[in-house]
Design a binder for these strands. Structure first.
Lengths: 109, 109
DNA sequence: GTGGAGTATTCCGATACCAGTATATGCCTA
DNA sequence: TAGGCATATACTGGTATCGGAATACTCCAC
């Protein structure tokens, strides 16, 4: 997973763009309105997302339609994989604790 | 998921710390060696991780043992959830395409 | 080819971040 | 309680990032 992906995800406006693009592709103008940022600032965020591979652009006349590319997010998912066991273990332990507690309470009745 | 988590994860040294702590808790001195950073710089990274809730510290005499707290990573996993369907869909589509291709090729033989 | 719509790039200023050096704090041992 | 070990904080310099304003680029429609 490349550094640019982490950096791109480290901004709330850019994450908001990803959320919007999850529904459907958007033209830049639509994103400008949704983010309440200036058009140049929005364009710059889109550039960061593009260079991280998180979005793809489809030119349509003078408009540019941005669409989500989830591939880097799949890499993020892979990065997360080794940690997943940790909170699963913790939940398992909680589960066993609760089971034991219930058993104890049942024994008490 | 809080902003501090994204910011904390946006640094390679801090992610390296998480990787190390995945195996077992480490004292600060051990991390200094592993990261080849100065001790104060390492401490500062640990502060960022601590304030993001990604690590917990257990004082042991004059040493401080840092341990991973995976809870924020579970939140990251949850953040990722709505996107997971997207690359699954794409893989499904690829799968169907391959199936269809194989079927076609088999028809041709 | 001129005009305008839509988007990207450039140029600032303010702030945040990362690394190091120097220094402070806390805790054990003798 | 004096000394030393382990860690944290303060301060500083260099660089990156974010935002807006101004400007450049590109592509239709007329």
């Amino acid at each position: 997973m490349h550094e640019a992906v982490w950096a791109a995800l480290n901004d709330p406006h850019r994450r908001a763009v990803l959320t919007l693009l999850r529904q459907r592709p958007h033209a830049v103008g639509e994103l400008v309105g949704a983010l309440s940022l200036s058009q140049p600032t929005t364009s710059k965020h889109l550039r960061v997302l593009r260079e991280a591979g998180l979005v793809r652009v489809l030119p349509a006349a003078q408009r540019r339609i941005y669409a989500l590319d989830p591939a880097p997010l799949a890499e993020l998912d892979a990065w997360l994989a080794p940690y997943r066991a940790l909170w699963n273990d913790r939940l398992d332990a909680l589960g066993r604790h609760l089971d034991a507690t219930v058993t104890d309470e049942q024994r008490e009745t």
